[in-house]
């Protein structure tokens, strides 16, 4: 598999580390235990198109959001995490 890092270009899988489902958002500090429980443990495991976190640790160290079809490994989009690089003020 090859992933096109928005910063580095197309690279081989070995440079990346997989984390998992990128959908869950970390709840606010006061969201309560149930919300955090969902965030930590409830994951979709989709046979199809998924949004996933990948880390380009063997390259530019950017965290990426990769849209990947888990059946075909086709990657339809890659975007950088909100805080990759210096970000923009207000981002």
């Amino acid at each position: 598999m090859r992933i096109t890092c928005p910063f580095c270009g197309e690279r081989e899988l070995g440079e990346f580390t997989y984390l998992g489902d990128a959908k869950p958002q970390r709840p606010a500090a006061d969201a309560g235990e149930d919300a955090v429980y969902d965030y930590v443990y409830l994951r979709d495991n989709i046979a199809g198109v998924m949004s996933e976190h990948w880390y380009h640790g063997g390259g530019c160290r950017a965290w990426l959001k990769v849209t990947r079809n888990t059946l075909t490994h086709e990657i339809s989009a890659v975007e950088a995490a909100a805080g990759a690089g210096a970000a923009k003020v207000g981002a």
Binding site: W63, A82, G83
Partner: peptide
């Protein structure tokens, strides 16, 4: 060492990009 760096980058870039 390597995993903590990865974790901290995750915190910085994904969890707390406002910092």
């Amino acid at each position: 060492a390597g995993l903590v760096m990865q974790h901290l980058e995750f915190c910085r870039q994904v969890l707390f990009p406002e910092l």
